[in-house]
């Protein structure tokens, strides 16, 4: 990499000023198109109490190594881009403050159970396609309006029944934490299952039977063994494990 000079020698960039607190950021580097094995690059990073892991990674990318591959966008835990393994656990980089990790070394690696594109970036094609498979939309004949149509009525209590599961930002952390996905890449996964429940629990929807049929197969819902890791890592409180167990109530005939 070419040497990087500051814009002018008098103006040192503020962000590179050493602060009292600093940690070592270890970033997994691996480009399957070029490299044979992953390596870790280490950078000292200073931080404030509000500095997130994403801030730290971008600091390194902007001022030390431009080649770090990382996916990010909204930096407020809404877009779901920056899921990665931080000190061994799947987390959103923008939603993890360095100060709350209580560690002098912060290691970031790409999420497990997804194909690697480069460094911290993984491919989501399969997760997006399983999401599509469970028919994630309102299934009913009059779902297109004509002029003069008003809303389907829904009480605040009706909304409470599914709103928790509508919080999914498709960051993939649940699939990365899931012990079944650790060995079974054909498992439909907690993300899609939670979404199946989100639509079934919506009183406007009439697609329950179709969706239950789709998930009731060999690598479908029964691949879940309620280890709860998905719910533990979900950054939005979606609780996929709960959604999955509630879905099973329908399949086992406890619930209509």
């Amino acid at each position: 990499m070419a040497a990087i000079f500051p814009v002018s020698s008098q103006e040192k960039h503020e962000k590179t000023k050493p602060s009292a607190k600093s940690i070592t950021l270890r970033i997994s580097k691996f480009n399957p198109g070029k490299d044979h094995a992953p390596t870790f690059l280490e950078f000292p990073v200073s931080y404030e109490k509000w500095t997130t892991v994403l801030d730290a990674i971008l600091e390194v990318k902007n001022y030390h190594d431009h080649s770090i591959g990382v996916r990010y966008s909204c930096r407020q835990a809404m877009c779901g881009s920056c899921g990665m393994i931080i000190n061994g656990k799947p987390k959103l980089a923008c939603f993890t403050k360095i100060s709350e990790l209580n560690s002098n070394v912060v290691t970031v690696e790409p999420m497990n159970n997804f194909p690697l594109i480069r460094d911290l970036v993984v491919g989501f094609e399969r997760m997006f396609s399983t999401h599509k498979r469970i028919k994630p939309y309102i299934v009913r004949e009059d779902s297109e309006i004509s002029s003069g149509t008003k809303e389907f009525l829904q009480s605040p209590e009706d909304v409470e029944k599914y709103i928790q599961f509508a919080g999914c930002i498709k960051c993939g952390l649940c699939n990365s934490a899931c012990p079944t996905m650790a060995t079974d890449s054909t498992f439909i996964g907690p993300q899609a299952l939670a979404q199946a429940y989100r639509y079934i629990a919506d009183n406007r929807d009439q697609g329950k039977d179709k969706r239950l049929r789709i998930i009731d197969e060999r690598h479908g819902i029964w691949g879940c063994h309620f280890a709860g890791s998905c719910s533990q890592v979900c950054p939005k409180g979606v609780d996929p494990a709960m959604g999955i167990q509630l879905l099973r109530g329908y399949l086992l005939g406890y619930k209509k």
Binding site: Y137, I145, E151, I163, A166, R204
Partner: peptide, 22 residues
């Protein structure tokens, strides 16, 4: 107004009033 109702028909989880309307 039609856009709001169309989104609602497509599954938008609008917060509701006690009478069930948006």
């Amino acid at each position: 107004p039609d856009e709001i109702y169309q989104l609602e028909h497509w599954g938008m989880p609008w917060s509701r009033r006690e009478d069930g309307r948006i």
